[in-house]
């Protein structure tokens, strides 16, 4: 029987069960690292450092998870805060690593060129629009959940998604459907 995230969190809370926490990390590492890689404009090393920091903070603050939102939503919020703090400290974001992107060919996507252009276009969006697009369109969060993650009003999330999509569509006109 597969334990739910809530069951695993309960084990961490009651028994300080690090194996249960390990299972939570295993389940969510891909989506958290994926989000951070795109926020960090494909600086994979930085993204993985921030992802580790995200999970460490989640472990230390697991008592503040009240189960009102999904565990993944709560993690995204921590990840976004980690990223924001890092960006504030550094005051600059690392540029896109073209070699890394090209080597990350995803067989699901028919055209690796399209994936590259899409990632590049995403990286060109301003941070608020990029984050809103990543959370809502790529990771399947509702606008309401994204607003909670980003701690901004719901209307702002909707505007950022709308603007981001418009810009992406313009930048990807050449690849658009016939």
């Amino acid at each position: 029987m597969e334990l739910t995230d809530a069951d695993l969190v309960a084990r961490v809370l009651v028994d300080d069960d690090q194996h249960a926490f390990g299972e939570l990390v295993r389940r969510h590492q891909s989506s958290v690292r994926g989000l951070l890689r795109q926020l960090a404009r494909s600086d994979f090393a930085l993204a993985d450092d921030l992802a580790q920091e995200t999970f460490l903070r989640a472990y230390k603050n697991v008592r503040s998870f009240r189960g009102e939102a999904r565990f993944s939503t709560w993690l995204y919020r921590i990840a976004y805060n980690c990223f924001r703090e890092h960006a504030r400290r550094r005051k600059e974001l690392v540029g896109i690593d073209e070699e890394q992107l090209q080597s990350e060919h995803d067989p699901q996507v028919a055209d690796p060129g399209l994936r590259y252009d899409l990632m590049h276009a995403l990286s060109l969006l301003p941070l608020p629009e990029r984050t809103a697009i990543l959370l809502c369109c790529q990771n399947g969060l509702s606008h309401d959940e994204a607003a909670r993650v980003l701690e901004i009003p719901l209307g702002t999330v909707k505007t950022n998604v709308l603007r981001g999509r418009e810009k992406l569509k313009k930048m990807l006109t050449a690849w658009g459907p016939d």
């Binding site: 690090q18 590492q29 891909s30 580790q52 460490l56 995803d106 996507v109 990632m119 459907p177």
Partner: peptide, 29 residues
């Protein structure tokens, strides 16, 4: 066009293999 963009965005997400990530996190707990 919106459907196409959404599909491309979703498909661009590939699963990232753990490759020792979880072990590293557990070591730092």
């Amino acid at each position: 066009q919106e459907d196409w963009l959404d599909r491309q965005l979703r498909e661009a997400v590939s699963y990232i293999d753990d490759e020792g990530f979880t072990a590293q996190v557990l070591k730092r707990l």
